[in-house]
Design a protein around this nucleic acid. Structure first.
Length: 858
RNA sequence: GGGAGUGUGGCGGAAUGGCAGACGCAGCGGACUUAAAAUCCGCCGCCGGAAGGCGUGAGGGUUCGAAUCCCUCCACUCCUACCA
């Protein structure tokens, strides 16, 4: 018998598949399409177990889909721009491209050793000019559509990466990549106006029925839609004697609490603050405070002890509902870039305002109460204001009854309450406010002050201002002669910036910022559909033909970042007429992390990293793939255990022998030394007859098919193991007889052997191919075969075992014919527990066909 | 503070409201072997000699029947964070 030797067969088949173009996309329009995509990797060194898990899931689905008759697009590429390459270049006094392309080669070789079925002709590498020129082209189109803006505002600056970051890239006040504390700086930067699409990005989450709920929830929270009102407060003159006619607008979701506004707060960065305090006695103190507050690091502001600080500005605003003058403070708990950077403070209804009022001894006016509040009887009918301070422990943020609120007294107050609605309508009538919606989502800051990225195609002309690079001049190429180790940047590079203004022809300077790498990953899935197009990023007919991606697979860390940006790009390209769908990814699978055997994250510093290459070298890629799938559900964390991998390797060996035995290829080395096996079993071992065998074959094909379609790979493999166990029991009876049966054309053994090999083909492609061609003697690849059929009728047994329960507790087991009439089943069940029913009154008998009978008796 | 999720043997994990623990790992026993490895067969939730009883984080509820649905609580994980 031929032994299973992964180290011999794996490279051999990889080579054959490559030579024969087995993984080429067929582009066969007669078959339904399926686009299976895994998030493309960043080429940082060799692959790790996370890659193995991600790409194994994708490969299994791609192979399964091909066998199911789909025309499958399953491409791979690299997200190749970014800082790690630049840092490596500085360290090794080399060029980022060198490091990047070397890592791509390494990773590609590893992917090939894993047996992943990518069509390498469609490889997309983000740092190739033939790809990034189209990123620049898209930038220009966005610009034409008014979706690109250059503006000055406080931005997140990572001092380590020496670049600005988008909001989404700041995690708990730290840089998403290097975890340094992020600082705020005022800079002029390039933005994509993703906020123009905020509402649609939120609404269309409902279309994404194939996405995990938590990802949609995270996106919804990030977009952060709030319904409320904007309210104008008139600024009082410096001596507070009258109104100035100038207004400060606030956003509030609680207009119902306007009567409880006892002070007003501006963010330290509030743009008119210096003008407001100019010449006031408080000027120095206010400006010093604002400066200090801005310097407090994002981390301190975001985490831990959130002690609020503030100072009085000396100015007052006039409350539009009651004409009261309210003191204006500046405080560090107001965020500058949400709403208007100014808030009305209602300490009795907002915990933050409450804490601030307590600290600075500002009035806490009760205007919303619960009915059991001791103040309620006194205030429920009172129209004026009789109580101006309370000794509460906390604000009432929940619903309550409005009191001391003029005409609104007695109404229910709270978010979206009748009180809120009444106040907003009154504001609208008086012209002092209106309904509005605020989003938490900020525009996407895309410029980066780094070399290794896609150059922003813009030119600064002293005459014409900022001018787009003409389409025909694309791509703006990155200069290759740059000495990053010496601190050279695009801005200081000799020659890169110098250019002529395309409008007026005068000397001008090229933009030296590059684009966020997330712009590269926002449309690569479209390029795969038409990767060699030299005329445009992709032909719409190609993209519309393949898209949307039917199954997207990647890490949960992109729940907001990449997935939100890609959805945005898709919608803009749709509005440009290049795409005819709204959402790029129909089904999303977020795979769980691969942890070490103790459940810890694998990391170099912990020294617990398991090397995929080492595992392949020891057990072969097929065992690694199969074990990865078997460890657990794909979206859950998985604990790597090498004993488990060794067990899977043993299983592949055992199943190999079973297949050989089925078709009589085992020779003297048959799986079961008949005598020994018989002795071992000593008459007690399970045996299976041809009926059992046939039934199990159909049942398992049904189960595996359903499991693959639900991405339940672990239970699919468990089912194949059950089929293996039944087959072994079947062969155990009279192996020699079966072999003869097979050789004379008896179809069952052959069918079971072929079925096993086909079911395993997506999981262990080399193993299956070798058995298919080398042992079963077929000419054409197993991966080109149709997925095995099954007949649900044949999967049914003629007899089933039912549990007999008495009041829900199992008391006995009975065997009945599958099609036995219900009354007969009842009687059999009652007979089976007759002893326990002695002296009891049977109230009810519930029969669940094929499962159990429950007898209810007292 | 807000949001999402998880909790089942020694371990990884199975179970459209219907026999909890499929499948595997580890362990134990046996066959084969001079022996070991490999392989093959079997046992394997807890208490109990057995009969039987108890068991899916804890406590309630709905139901003929709950790991699964509802309520309260506990523990852990992830995301997010002064968003007015």
């Amino acid at each position: 018998m031929k032994q299973y030797n992964p180290h011999e067969i794996e490279p051999r088949w990889q080579d054959i598949w490559e030579r024969t173009g087995a993984n080429k996309v067929a582009e066969d329009s007669s078959r339904p399409k399926r686009y299976v995509l895994e998030m493309f990797p960043y080429p940082s060194g060799d692959i790790h177990m996370g890659h193995v898990s991600n790409y194994t899931y994708g490969d299994v689905l791609a192979r399964f889909s091909r066998m199911k008759g789909f025309d499958v697009l399953h491409p791979m590429g690299w997200d190749a721009f970014g800082l790690p390459a630049e840092n490596a270049a500085i360290k090794h006094k080399s060029h980022p491209a060198k490091w990047t392309y070397a890592n791509i080669d390494t990773q590609k070789a590893s992917f090939q050793r894993m047996g992943f079925s990518y069509d390498w002709d469609r490889k997309v590498v983000a740092c190739d000019p033939e790809y990034y020129r189209w990123g620049q082209w898209i930038f220009l189109k966005f610009w034409e559509r008014g979706l690109v803006e250059r503006r000055n505002s406080p931005v997140n600056w990572c001092p380590d990466c020496k670049t600005v970051l988008a909001n989404e890239q700041v995690i708990e006040g730290c840089c998403w990549r290097c975890h340094s504390e992020v600082e705020k700086r005022d800079l002029t930067q390039w933005y994509f106006k993703i906020t123009d699409y905020a509402q649609e990005l939120l609404d269309d989450l409902d279309q994404l029925t194939g996405w995990p709920e938590r990802v949609k929830q995270q996106q919804a929270n990030w977009i952060g839609r709030s319904e409320g009102a904007s309210v104008d407060f008139e600024l009082a003159t410096k001596d507070a004697s009258a109104g100035t006619g100038e207004y400060i607008t606030v956003f509030t979701t609680r207009a119902d609490t306007l009567f409880g506004c006892s002070f007003f707060v501006l963010a330290p960065e509030y743009k008119d603050l210096p003008a407001m305090v100019a010449g006031m006695p408080q000027e120095r103190e206010v400006l010093d405070f604002a400066e200090a507050a801005k310097k407090v690091s994002a981390v301190e502001r975001a985490q831990g002890n959130r002690e609020k600080h503030g100072v009085f500005t000396g100015r007052y605003v006039i409350n539009p509902v009651n004409g009261e003058k309210v003191p204006v403070w500046v405080a560090d708990y107001v965020v500058a870039d949400y709403g208007t950077g100014a808030v009305m403070a209602v300490p009795c209804g907002d915990q933050r305002d409450f804490e601030f009022a307590r600290k600075y001894d500002l009035p806490i006016i009760p205007i919303i109460l619960t009915e059991d509040d001791p103040l309620y009887p006194q205030l429920k009918d009172e129209k004026g204001r009789v109580v101006t301070s309370v000794d509460w422990d906390a604000a009432l943020e929940a619903e309550g009854i409005l009191v001391q609120s003029g005409p609104y007294t007695g109404l229910v107050g709270g978010k979206h309450s009748e009180g809120e609605d009444a106040v907003v309508r009154a504001l609208e009538q008086s012209g002092r406010g209106h309904r509005t919606v605020e989003f938490r989502l900020r525009d996407w800051l895309i410029s980066r002050q780094r070399y290794w990225g896609n150059p922003i195609p813009a030119i600064h002309c002293p005459e014409c201002g900022v001018v787009p690079v003409p389409e025909e001049d694309l791509p703006v190429l990155l200069p290759e002669d740059i000495d990053l180790a010496a601190g050279e940047t695009l801005a200081t590079h000799e020659g890169f910036a110098a250019c002529m203004c395309p409008k007026c022809g005068r000397e001008a300077r090229r933009e030296t910022d590059t684009m966020d790498t997330f712009t590269c990953s926002s449309w690569y899935y479209l390029r795969y559909t038409d990767p060699h197009n030299a005329e445009s990023p992709f032909d719409p007919s190609m993209a519309n033909g393949w898209m949307p991606v039917d199954q997207y697979i990647g890490g949960i860390e992109h729940a907001i970042l990449h997935l939100l940006y890609s959805r945005f790009f898709t919608k803009v390209l749709r509005d440009m007429g290049m795409l005819d769908f709204d959402e790029p990814f129909t089904n999303l699978l977020c795979q769980g992390m691969v942890l070490d055997e103790h459940g810890d994250v694998m990391s170099k510093s912990k020294g617990n990293v398991v090397s995929p290459e080492k595992m392949i070298a020891e057990y072969g890629a097929d065992a690694v793939r199969a074990y990865m799938l078997f460890m657990g559900p794909p979206d859950k964390e998985k604990m790597w255990n090498e004993d488990g991998l060794a067990g899977m390797f043993k299983f592949l060996n055992r199943l190999w022998r079973i297949v050989c035995d089925l078709v009589g290829e085992a020779g003297d080395q048959t799986l079961f030394d008949a005598e020994a096996a018989a002795k071992a079993a000593a008459g007690k071992g399970a045996h299976a007859n041809a009926m059992d065998m046939k039934r199990e074959r159909h049942r398992v094909v049904g189960k595996v098919t359903a499991d693959f379609e639900r991405n339940n790979f672990n239970t699919a493999i468990a089912a194949i193991m059950e089929l293996a166990n039944t087959t072994a029991a079947f062969l155990r009876v009279k192996p020699a007889e079966h072999r003869v049966n097979c050789q004379t054309g008896g179809p069952l053994c052959r069918d079971v052997a072929e079925t096993i090999v086909k079911l395993m083909a997506p999981i262990a492609p080399h193993w299956a191919e070798e058995l298919w061609c080398g042992v079963l003697g077929n000419e054409e690849s197993v991966h080109a075969q149709a997925w095995p059929d099954f007949d649900p009728e044949l999967a049914k047994a003629d007899e089933v075992e039912l549990a007999v329960q008495l009041n829900g507790k199992v008391k006995a087991k009975i065997m009945v014919a599958t099609d036995e009439a219900e009354d007969a089943v009842k009687q059999t069940a009652l007979d089976a527990i007759a002893a326990q029913l002695e002296g009891k009154d049977v109230k009810k008998v519930v029969v669940v066909p094929g499962r159990l009978v429950n007898v209810v008796a007292k």
